[in-house]
Nucleic acid binder design. Structure first.
Length: 271
DNA sequence: CGAGCAACCTGCATGC
DNA sequence: TGCATGCAGGTTGCTC
């Protein structure tokens, strides 16, 4: 489910309901996520409150007086605000109850997500330390991509999906950004001009911003923290449209696999 | 070093 | 109807 816009939508949806309210209870129903939920997590959270929630890449960072809780939603995770007496879903793995009467629940059927704790400065955390720039800041720009890509034979789609290069560009938005900038997903990253990287950067930023403004992309059951679905699906030009006509030139869209990920493109518009 | 891919899981669609 | 297969929005950490 979640790419960067969905994570950002979640952040915006849950913040007001959980910030600065004492944490009364932490219930771990199943600690077996990608990594086990740390046993000391409840003790570190209880009695404290969340003073800030930030997003870095697709990680949500919950600041408390003792440290930071990191949550990653993996492929199928979602965070929802519920009333504490709401019946549990089979895949609700952890719940945080707040003094203000709200409860925050993580549901994650595939359990590729993670809930971690660190008391170190967050920028030093091994999972965050080597991440590339945020795509919606000036740190992502054509010069950077151009420079990092010289002599690289890797396909451009894999290049922009590499979090060491730039974070937050997942499979859906990689497909969409490449279509919008007219670049063939298999083109060698090192053979793309500065000029074309300008277009690609512009499109990555435009598409991610638009998706955030529309509340993310609801494919299966994604709902923002406010329970509303995302509306970006209707904007998708290539993802999930294999065999359909390109909306630009009517050519039939093709699908290939790149690093095992579904890659849809227009063989006419993308070179 | 980079490239490729196995691994972590469940649910759902498809085909026989 | 049942069963096998393949695929899904992500990322780490192997092996070669």
């Amino acid at each position: 489910m979640p790419e960067l816009p969905e994570v950002e939508t979640t952040l915006r949806g849950i913040s007001a309901h959980v910030l600065n309210s004492p944490i009364r209870q932490v219930s771990i129903r199943n600690p077996r996520l990608r990594w086990p939920i740390p046993e000391e997590l409840p003790d570190n959270l209880l009695g404290g409150s969340i003073s800030q929630i930030q997003r870095r890449a697709k990680y949500l960072l919950f600041t408390t007086h003792l440290g930071t809780m990191l949550i990653h939603l993996g492929m199928s995770g979602s965070l929802r605000i519920v009333q504490p007496n709401t019946p549990y879903d089979k895949h609700d793995h952890i719940e945080f109850c707040f003094a203000n009467g709200n409860a925050l629940r993580l549901k994650d059927p595939r359990r590729f997500g993670a809930v971690l704790w660190t008391s170190e400065p967050i920028s030093e955390h091994p999972l965050l330390k080597h991440l590339g720039p945020e795509p919606l800041t000036d740190e992502l720009n054509a010069e950077l991509l151009f420079k990092l890509s010289r002599n690289k034979k890797i396909a451009i789609k894999q290049f922009i999906m590499n979090a060491k290069i730039v974070v937050g560009v997942g499979n859906i938005y990689a497909n969409e950004a490449l279509f919008a900038s007219g670049i063939h997903p298999k083109r060698a990253a090192g053979k793309i001009s500065k000029k074309r990287y300008e277009a690609l950067c512009t499109e990555i930023k435009r598409i991610l911003s638009l998706a955030i403004a529309q509340g993310g992309t609801t494919l299966k059951d994604f709902l923002g923290g406010d329970g509303k679905p995302g509306y970006f699906k209707q904007e998708l030009q290539v993802y999930g449209r294999k065999g359909l006509a390109c909306q630009q030139c009517q050519t039939v869209l093709k699908e290939i696999r790149l690093a095992k990920r579904s890659t849809v493109y227009c063989p006419q518009c993308q070179r």
